[in-house]
Amino acid sequence: MSASLVMQAILSGITNGFVYALIGIGLAVIFKGTQIINAMQGEFAVIGAMVTVFALEPAGLPYGLSILLGVISGAAAGVIIDRLFVQPMMRQRAGEESFLLLTIGLAVTLSAAVLYLAGRNSYLLPSWGEEGVIEILDAFLQIQALWLIGTAIIVVVGLRLFYGRTLLGLSMMAASMDPDGAATNGINVRRMRSLTFLLGGTIGAIAGILVAPLVAVNYHMGIALTLKGFAAAILGGLSNPLGAVLGGVTLGLLESLAVVGFPSGYKDVIALAMMIVIMIVMPNGLLGRVGRIGG
């Protein structure tokens, strides 16, 4: 077990960690705004990536525009889900498990729809800027990974400022924590919820677009991404975007280092088991109570 191997594990762990983190951030945002666990967050990523792929190739649009379309489609998907499904169920005062099952059902539907519309292939997007890797201690990090990490950090900082400083952000949190109280203060609770889903969908799409140059995206990936994102978000206290980053990176590093030490077939088992243990032992995530209230 050499230094370069450990270094490689760390680098790939951080890269993966930020992918999980981006999904986890989206989950945290939606939970923060609606108290709903969105089991189709990974599908937003797949939608964003797929739309970008098809805007780029068959349609021949420039990369920047394709990315914009991808992000918009993620946002639109979020709003449509909210308007078509979540709002009616909210009106009927459906229970927690109904929402969970709704999002699971939507995840299954979307995954099948992507297969039907886009086919069974895996798609790669071109890297942003230059192709290539940086070499650190005889281990390699993709330059695309730096873009990913950078964007994730910007998103987290942006969200912090948004929720903490802007009126809109504060209204969204209020609408989630105390809908009736918020309504009496003139906050349009339903619109806040739609905006939350819009934001969640956007972040999800961004995650997919950033990942697609690294890992070929296909119709299958959504659920796997969602699970890892879940784990990241939970480690971070579930409604704290910064926590999701910490959770994601922790998870990514755990996985990679486990591979260095143990037979690699058990990587997922180890990560999932750790996640369960942490949920039981540290219910507020790694950041403690701060994690759960968070922002």
Binding site: L5, S12, N16, L214, V259, V260, S264, G265, K267, D268
Partner: peptide, 18 residues
């Protein structure tokens, strides 16, 4: 070895390279 649905195998690949 890696799981079927694994999306990143850099560490395993590095071990093989080593």
């Amino acid at each position: 070895k890696f799981e079927i649905a694994a999306t990143d195998l850099t560490t395993q690949a590095a071990k093989v390279r080593a």
